[in-house]
Design a protein around this nucleic acid. Structure first.
Lengths: 180, 180
DNA sequence: TTGCTCCTCACGTCACGTGAGGTGGC
DNA sequence: TTGCTCCTCACGTCACGTGAGGTGGC
């Protein structure tokens, strides 16, 4: 009886894997990770093999692959469909990142164009850089964004830079750097 | 009676806006875009003002802002909370893009390491470039990826390049370019 | 007896898509 | 009468989170 104390129950496995209990219960219902044994009290008891399978699940989960496809992957002993599924996910990721970039761009454009506060809480250069950095845009991203802005709407770009209170001389430098 | 023929019904507005009927019905239920009038047959009749409001909705939707927040935004006549909401979305986008990049990376690493096909269907350089391009990775992205790979696991990078059937001399050139 | 973990439903999430079953309009 | 558009439920999606109500284990 004391022998069951070190068995893998949901809670233990959850802590070990970093997943939630409810996630593991869900995987059980899906058939992605079944616990074959139960204790006398009807507790789920996972085996070492189950824990190993869970590690595989986690690998694919970190790639953002849907649970149903992970099932396929784990059954695909011959690896005949593995590369295909990974490549498909890679394509979807490409499209999703593109879409999110477009969304970033729309927001940055709106933030840069309107004096959004009635109170005219002036956004200066430092504040602007701070916002962009908080959004995870690297220096490279910011440069690219200036280049795009300059190419698409040079006048708005000029106005935007003025609105940040940047000196005319520096504005000219920035815009020139965008065009070369 | 013929006068009602040119009124904006759901179907018409759907076609004009590029949304689906069911999306518009959903917005109605949410209170995001209500049609105030109904025809004798209980059809929804949208006004020009409604159509204008829908345009605003679409602007924010393209930023990926949740519908409930779009409601707030459209009620925020004083623009007091607008900048705040946009900046928050920008931060979330930054995190989401980072996460998707991590997912890309995991997949690329797995595709590059294992000979995934038992059949040894050799993946050569052209095929590899093709996969990466299909995934939306630009030349810059691919260069960055090589640099990271070289820095983190130089031996695996060497093996990977060999597995693509690239000449030793070119491999050396590629790896050198990554380190400088 | 007290806590802690476990169990099984069942409903909620977000932005719709998809029928089912039925009624006006031209 | 035939099609087309419209109407209102109501259920499904994806990966869980969150109770509710109840039972073992130490």
């Amino acid at each position: 009886m004391g022998m069951e104390a070190d068995k893998l129950t949901v809670g233990i496995l959850a802590r070990q894997s970093g997943l939630s209990r409810s996630a593991l219960l869900y995987y059980d219902r899906l058939g992605l990770l079944k616990s074959r044994r139960r204790s006398r009290a009807n507790y789920r008891i996972y085996s070492a093999a189950d824990a190993e399978r869970l590690n595989q699940v986690l690998v694919y989960r970190r790639m953002g692959i849907p649970l149903e496809e992970i099932k396929t992957l784990l059954e695909d002993a011959g690896r005949s469909r593995t590369a295909e599924i990974l490549q498909r996910r890679l394509q979807i990721l490409g499209r999703e990142i593109l879409e999110l970039r477009r969304q970033q761009d729309s927001i940055v454009k709106m933030l840069s164009q309107k004096p959004l506060q009635k109170e005219a809480e002036v956004i200066n250069k430092d504040r602007w850089v701070q916002i962009m950095e908080a959004a995870g845009l690297s220096d490279d991203d910011m440069h690219n964004w200036h280049v795009q802005f300059e190419k698409m709407e040079p006048d708005a770009h000029q106005e935007f830079l003025e609105s940040l209170g940047i000196e005319p001389a520096e504005i000219n430098r920035i815009r020139a750097a965008c065009r070369k």
